[in-house]
Amino acid sequence: MLTLLSIRRALLPVALLAPALAAVAQDAAAPAADAAAAAAAPAADTGAQMFMFWFLLATLALVLLVFGLLFVLLVIKMKPQLRALYELPTVHDTWSGKVLGLLVGDAALITGKDKDELMGHDYDGITEFDNDLPPWWKYGFYFTIVFAIGYMVFYHVTYTGDLQLAEYETEMQQAALLVSADDDDPNKLTTYTALTAGPDLEAGKALFITNCAACHGTEGEGKVGPNLTDDYWLHGGDVNHVYKTIKFGVTSKGMVAWKGKLSGKQILQVASYIESLHGTNPPNAKEPQGEKEAPSGPPLAAK
């Protein structure tokens, strides 16, 4: 009996503290729930706005379609009255009359009319008539003049619009935002310095002979792949350009990416060894390929 009473007395503080602990836990979880709700709110608002935009656009298109059909039906129904109005002398030759003529089947406003007046030029049975250019052609020509003036002012006078080079640079900057900026970003060049320690170059040589000699030769003279000992490079001769080429490969030319087969240290060792081959002039060297680059001097020691 005493033991049971002691247990009850011991559990009484815990029972009294339980509601307080639950309240504290609820208060601690509230900020996380609020943050999740706040993050979901913009997404929900964006979805609702997009739905409303497409709904209004579809409604506008439907209204325009209905009005267009009603207009066509009205013209068909009133075609005899419109033709009688068009044939009036005071209406027929006016610009508004020509617009009216389009509704009743006379396309003179667009195609023009033949004068059937000879110019007096006759050669080998070919005669020339004094007919004006079709109005549609003249209107198109006038439009090109206005467009050319506007284009010149917009791009070359006020510099409001970006030219092709500026547009290209802007698009490249936007594309770079979509690419991760970590070590697996092929657009991000590393800032390594070439390794010059003997063990690193020996390790790079061993890796080169094992993995690269089949295409570039045991001495870098070039076989299927280019010569790696001259001043000419297809993808850059700096150690960081060579590192990038080894890591990501050039799949369009048959060179595989080695980032999944060699570690970053091993790739740098191979790139450093390739740098050390510059100017060795091995026998049977392949002809130069790519762009010539000025020698960068002896490789610097890596930190």
Rank of each mutant, 00 (worst) to 15 (best):
D231N: 15
L228F: 03
Y151V: 00
G198A: 15
A213G: 06
G125K: 02
D124P: 00
A176D: 15
L133R: 10
M172N: 09
D132T: 08
Y155W: 12
N187K: 08
M119F: 07
H235L: 14
D162Y: 08
A206K: 08
S180L: 08
G140S: 09
T158R: 11
I149A: 13
D231M: 05
Y168A: 08
E128G: 00
M172E: 15
D185F: 05
D182K: 03
L177S: 10
Y192P: 07
T111D: 13
G217A: 02
L163H: 07
K115C: 04
P135Y: 05
G198H: 11
T160S: 12
Q173D: 14
D162H: 11
F129Y: 13
V157Y: 12
A176K: 12
D114T: 11
D130W: 08
C215P: 03
L178P: 00
H241R: 05
V146T: 04
G198Y: 11
V157F: 11
Y168F: 10
A194P: 03
A214H: 02
H235C: 01
G237K: 04
F143R: 06
A148F: 12
D132V: 00
G220I: 01
N211Y: 10
G222F: 02
D200P: 01
E219R: 09
L189A: 12
L195P: 00
Y139S: 11
L165Y: 14
G150Y: 06
A175Q: 13
T190I: 01
G222K: 03
T196V: 12
E169S: 03
A214D: 12
I110C: 05
D130T: 08
I209R: 13
L133M: 10
G150S: 08
T190P: 06
Y192R: 09
P135I: 03
P134K: 11
L178T: 07
T127N: 11
C215V: 02
L189M: 14
D132G: 10
K205M: 10
L118N: 10
V153W: 09
Y168R: 13
G161C: 03
N211K: 13
T144G: 02
P186I: 01
L189R: 14
C215K: 02
D183F: 06
D230G: 01
C212K: 05
G198F: 07
S180G: 11
T218G: 13
D231A: 13
V239P: 06
T196H: 08
G220P: 03
N227K: 04
L201S: 04
D231I: 01
G217W: 03
L207M: 05
